Amino acid sequence: METQTAPAYRYWGPDLVAHGPGELPAIVGWIRQGRVTPTTWVYRDDAKAWRPAGEWPELKPLLGPRGTAAATPAGLTPDQLRRIKIFADLDNTQLLALLNYLEPVEVRQFSTLFRKGDPGDAMYSVLAGEVRAREISEGKETTLFTLTVGDSFGELALLIEGERASDIVANTDSKLLRLPATAFTRIIHEAPPLAAPLLLAISRTLAHRARSLGDRLMNDLTLAQAAGGISV
């Protein structure tokens, strides 16, 4: 009769090292020591998969109610979060982990979320409502673009320190999700299986935006040349 081998676990520590392996008694000790929390990424060798500790059924009772999806901001679910375009390709496990790093923000109609020149310290995504980016020059307002449900803005703030390029104003009462730059840094250290696809999604979004801007500038240049306004 074959003897069933107990699964071994490893956890990803803040020092960017996978600790372990250890069987269930070992991980119980790690939880008691505070090394493993519901959002700590844990590898189980028999499943050959990394998941947040709170997503392993046998670990949930050890972690308490914080290991359940009910602890996510504003009671959001992965399906609701998937409405955000930049998160659309993440799987349910990754989305559940991401929810632990997001902050819900409510913005009243006509109020300003931030102004041009403010420090860029977070990315925002529109969960409900509508906002616009604007510039004001010599007392005249110009709308640069409008953002609706599923759109994100401020992604560059997660990668480099800098100032906001424009004002963001709410056209309607809006619900946003905020991912602070500090939380993004924590994801890189605490949750590498989430960090890689999230960074890829952000990079693709920025690349598409840069290409779109380049195409628009080329079209404007072509029109100006056709009108005789610019000679090359």
Rank of each mutant, 00 (worst) to 15 (best):
Y43W: 04
Y101Q: 05
P57K: 09
L62T: 01
A47C: 09
S111G: 00
T39D: 03
R83D: 02
H19C: 08
K60Q: 07
Q33R: 02
L81A: 05
P65S: 13
R82F: 10
Q94S: 02
G67S: 09
V107M: 03
W30M: 00
L102D: 04
R32L: 10
A71W: 10
Q109D: 12
D91V: 12
E23A: 09
I84C: 11
A26Y: 07
P104C: 09
L96M: 08
L16R: 15
E103G: 00
F87A: 14
L98R: 11
T93F: 08
P104R: 10
R82W: 08
T93A: 12
W41F: 15
D89E: 07
P61G: 02
L24C: 00
D45A: 05
G34Y: 10
G34L: 04
R83H: 06
G54P: 00
E58Y: 15
E55F: 14
G64C: 04
D45K: 13
A18F: 05
E55C: 14
R32I: 07
L99V: 01
R66P: 10
K85I: 05
D91K: 12
F114A: 10
D79K: 13
L98N: 08
W56T: 06
I31Q: 03
V107E: 07
P21L: 06
G64F: 01
I84R: 09
L24R: 02
D91T: 13
S111W: 09
R35C: 04
G64H: 05
A26V: 11
R32S: 14
L76T: 02
T40Y: 01
A69V: 02
P21E: 10
Y101H: 13
I84W: 11
A49K: 02
S111K: 12
N100L: 04
G64D: 04
P61N: 07
I27D: 04
E103T: 11
G67T: 03
A47D: 08
H19S: 09
K60L: 02
F114H: 13
T77C: 03
P25E: 00
A97T: 09
T93S: 15
P73G: 13
I84G: 02
L76H: 00
W30K: 01
P57V: 00
T68F: 01
Y101F: 12
G22K: 06
Y101G: 06
G54L: 01
D46W: 14
T39G: 01
T77R: 05
E58F: 15
V28E: 13
W41M: 15
I27S: 00
E23Q: 12
A53V: 05
V28P: 00
Q33K: 01
D91S: 12
D45T: 11
E106V: 13
A49N: 00
R115P: 00
K116Q: 14
